[in-house]
Design a protein around this nucleic acid. Structure first.
Length: 533
RNA sequence: GCCGCCAUCGUCUAGUCUGGUCUAGGACGCCAGGUUCUCAUCCUGGAAAUCAGGGGUUCGAAUCCCCUUGGCGGUACCA
């Protein structure tokens, strides 16, 4: 059996769209699943929509998300990984290289190839020169629409321009396009990997322009030529291409090539079921990364939009490796899928709890830095808003904060949102916040004194969450056991927690005290006790 | 308009090919309860789909066939 080869072929018109990314993901999953090759090529035949820097940005996004490709377009800095393959510098994009035996992998760098094939098609009678001007075409279409006919090129140049005239116009450098001559009265039928049998009648297929007057090919020509040149076996793309398949199939036939298999993926939709668009939220993968969604979560979520492992599988959280193992086209859905950010949030929260602390710390650090920069400075005697000194101390401290915060994070951008761990030389909060139910001031002071005593008796070296919880719980039992044997823990824990955080809601006093450390914790208790004099 | 694709809880979906075990299962979200010093986590439970509608076929249809409706895509010298 032939080795499978798939390709991801974005256009450099901006950032990576989430829908595009899903296509890339399925490409990757299918390639890895079948032990095939994954190729990245660039479709830059539309100079009007070209965006400077988009090629680099597309590559960075794919890279960041960890979908490794085997061949095609790369950033220069990884050239060394391809010692055994053919590598060339991109002609049109500095800093970009092309690695592999089937290049160029950038369409603007193989214009002559497309032109050659287009001219061959003309010679073989499958295409013809067209000198019609845009204005005439537009008028023609308007008229057809008025008569409720399908808007299709009327073959004016095929019927009315003689070969002699063609040659003459060509010599005079008249602008021209090359159009495909669609054979009529035919039913084109093919088997789509997700949709099954699909049929089209060629009478409704337009004589598509293959070569534009600026010398660039259209998508249809370039795509077919590339996929053949690059020996692509499976074309995986969005549903918007489904109705172009007959054109492509006919091209393969006219060129004498074997067509690949097709898989047309369902569209991603907005909440109102229209095609996913910018107006209703972010559509660039970058936006989600910036907001603090983990790549693991983005991959996990996007994979499940339009695909599922089937067979009553109830697992929801999958690693990339697991997805590779389970992926198949039989379970790709046919209907469009709404991009529901609530579910992404949940999946992200799951991943934040799941990945190793050190990994999470690396990813969260930029968000902490940003947060710390926003705090007023100098904040305290240590010179920064943490009750520790030095870079190591800071790292250790932030990791503790993260340990506590990760349980309640949806996105990394929320890190530090409650600033109880960072501030401020003086903790100042209302007396009433310290009060548990209807405790008297005296009891309140007693409670904090009890806590203080417990904390004072824990040596620095034993300052762990476990010890704190154990000692504090013992104190609860000792001081606040009612006649009926029930322990009113709130009497000890609430004032303590309030004293440490000055917040209505926060993590437990054990966790907070553990992060803050002995000195800072005792300091905050002392400040609170001042309040209830 | 024309061509094509699609259609199960609000959302993602299982089940459809190989009709019965589906008075339709899971997850998110929502609601209630539990754990609990607060919040979050976590656990338990609940509401939520006459399987778009109608007609067949069949002893039996979410599953097969036809029609209707709705949604979406395409209809460019854009991809």
């Amino acid at each position: 059996m032939k080795k499978t080869r798939v390709r991801f072929a974005p256009s450099p018109t901006g950032f990576m769209h989430i829908g595009n990314f899903r296509t890339a993901l399925y490409d990757y999953l299918f390639a890895r699943k079948t032990g095939g090759d994954f190729v990245l090529k660039i479709e830059d035949t539309d100079r009007k929509r070209f965006v400077e820097g988009a090629v680099e940005s597309l590559i960075s996004s794919l890279d960041f998300l960890g979908l490794n490709w085997d061949e095609g377009v790369f950033k220069k800095d990884i050239a060394s990984e391809f010692e055994n393959g053919k590598i060339v510098d991109s002609k049109n994009y500095p800093g970009i290289i092309e690695a592999g035996e089937h290049g160029p992998y950038i369409q603007s760098e193989k214009l002559e190839v497309y032109k050659k094939h287009a001219e061959q098609l003309v010679k073989d009678g499958h295409a013809y020169y067209c000198f019609c001007e845009p204005a005439r075409l537009e008028e023609m279409r308007k008229e057809q629409q008025a008569q409720k006919l399908p808007p299709i090129y009327d073959q004016y140049c095929l019927r009315n321009v003689t070969p002699e005239e063609v040659n003459k116009k060509l010599k005079e450098n008249c602008p021209y396009t090359i159009r495909m001559k669609i054979s009529k009265d035919e039913t084109i039928e093919f088997e789509d990997m997700v949709r099954g049998k699909v049929k089209f009648n060629t009478n409704l297929v337009d004589d598509q322009v293959l070569l534009k007057s600026d010398g660039f090919p259209t998508y249809h020509l370039a795509n077919v030529v590339d996929d053949h040149d690059m020996k692509i076996t499976h074309v995986i793309r969005g549903e918007e291409w489904l109705s172009s398949v007959p054109k492509h199939l006919l091209l393969y036939r006219y060129l004498g090539w074997e067509p690949p298999q097709f898989a047309h993926l369902p569209l991603l939709l907005n909440l109102d079921r229209s095609k996913l668009s910018k107006r209703q939220g972010d559509v660039a993968v970058e936006d989600y990364i910036k907001k603090g969604y983990l790549k693991e979560a983005i991959i996990n979520f996007v994979a499940m939009l339009g695909w599922n492992p089937g067979k009553g599988e109830t697992q929801e959280i999958f690693t990339l490796e697991e997805l590779v193992e389970k992926f198949d086209f039989a379970h790709v859905h046919k209907g469009g899928a709404v991009f529901d950010i609530k579910k992404l949030d949940w999946i992200n929260a799951q991943w934040i709890k799941k990945i190793p602390l050190d990994d999470l710390y690396e990813k969260a650090l930029p968000y902490y830095e940003k947060f710390l920069q926003r705090l007023p400075s100098p904040v305290r005697s240590t010179g920064h808003p943490l009750p520790v000194t030095g870079e190591e101390g800071k790292k250790e401290y932030l990791k503790k904060v993260l340990t506590v915060e990760r349980e309640r994070l949806t996105k990394l951008s929320e890190v530090g949102e409650s600033n109880i761990f960072f501030f401020k030389d003086e903790v100042s909060c209302e007396k009433d916040l310290l009060r548990w139910k209807d405790m008297s001031d005296e009891d309140l002071r007693g409670s904090l004194a009890n806590s203080r005593e417990v904390l004072e008796n824990i040596p620095e070296g034993d300052w762990t969450r476990e010890n704190l919880e154990k000692s504090l719980m013992e104190a609860c039992e000792k001081h606040y056991k009612n006649e009926d044997g029930k322990i009113d823990r709130g009497k000890l824990l609430w004032p303590l927690r309030a004293a440490l955080t000055c917040e209505q809601k926060s993590p437990s006093p054990f966790e907070v005290a553990w992060v803050l450390g002995k000195t800072e914790s005792l300091k905050r208790i002392a400040i609170a006790m001042e309040k209830i004099k």
